[in-house]
Amino acid sequence: MSRKQLIYKWLWPFEKLVILAVAISAVLIFVFSFHVCDGSSMYPTISDGDMCLFYRLDTPARGDIVSYKTPSGIKIGRAVGIAGDRVSIDHEKLYVNGYEQESFYTVPGNVAEHTVKSGEIFVVNDYRTDTSDSRKYGDISLKNVEGVYFASLRTGGVS
């Protein structure tokens, strides 16, 4: 066996591992995104400190949990209104297309009924008293949506 063949024989498994690592990295970077939930904005669905996995190749539907970019960083919320939906908040109740939405919490503040524009979504936190969502930022452009919630790793209480 020549020296070249001997080197290839020993390097071949490492070459395959490098190719596998590059493929896995590409999937994790371009197909999924990871975010740690900071605060209680999505309580009780997602707790503070949970690591969440988001699927980047999906368009959010009504009711999906999404991660999205804001001027103050990445946020996590629930898409309650999609393009064409009429969304309003009145007397601490959320209405979508004229129907009251069930909620664990009241929704502080009022939002006059408006129609969500094409290419945008209306996002509200599950813990409704945290107003860092569409009540603060307005409709969220689909270009700013990082991904749709896929799964989470509970880390609450783990040190």
Results as ranks from 00 to 15, higher is better:
V148Q: 02
V145T: 04
G98K: 03
V66P: 00
S103K: 03
G138C: 02
R62N: 06
H91S: 13
T129R: 12
V96C: 05
G84D: 04
K117S: 15
I29G: 08
D64R: 02
Y99N: 12
F32C: 15
G63L: 06
R86S: 14
D58K: 14
P44E: 08
I89E: 00
D48P: 01
L142W: 00
A23P: 11
G77C: 02
E102P: 08
K9L: 14
I7T: 08
N144P: 06
L6C: 05
G98S: 02
G109E: 07
H91C: 13
P60F: 03
I7P: 06
L20H: 05
S72N: 15
V27R: 08
Y137V: 11
Y8S: 12
E146R: 09
P60S: 06
T106R: 15
L142G: 06
D139L: 05
Y68E: 01
V27C: 12
G63K: 05
V107F: 11
R78H: 02
C37D: 11
P60Y: 04
A26E: 12
A61Q: 13
I121D: 03
D133S: 08
L53K: 02
S103G: 06
K136N: 07
Y127K: 11
F104Y: 15
R62K: 10
V80P: 02
F30R: 08
H114L: 13
M42V: 01
K93I: 00
K69P: 12
I7C: 06
V66L: 04
W10D: 07
A61S: 11
F122L: 02
K69C: 10
A61V: 07
Y68Q: 03
G77S: 05
V22I: 15
R86L: 11
V148F: 00
S40Y: 08
Y149F: 09
L11N: 09
G156C: 03
F150A: 15
K9M: 13
V123G: 01
D48T: 05
A79T: 06
K9I: 11
S132G: 13
P44D: 08
H114T: 06
H114S: 12
H91D: 15
D85Q: 08
E113D: 08
Y68F: 11
L17W: 06
T115A: 06
G49N: 07
S41F: 03
I7M: 10
A112P: 11
E15Y: 12
S141N: 09
F32M: 15
S152M: 10
V66F: 01
I65M: 05
H35K: 09
G119S: 01
R78F: 01
Y68A: 05
G49C: 09
D38H: 13
T45F: 04
Y68G: 05
K4M: 14
E102V: 08
V87S: 02
L57H: 13
L6P: 01
V111W: 07
E15H: 08
N125H: 04
K4P: 00
F32K: 14
L142F: 03
V36E: 12
S118D: 10
T59S: 13
I65S: 01
Y149S: 01
M1A: 13
D130Q: 12
V123N: 01
G156K: 12
Y149G: 00
I82C: 10
Y99E: 14
G147V: 03
R3G: 12
K136P: 00
R62D: 03
F104Q: 12
K69N: 14
D139F: 05
F54L: 10
Q101T: 06
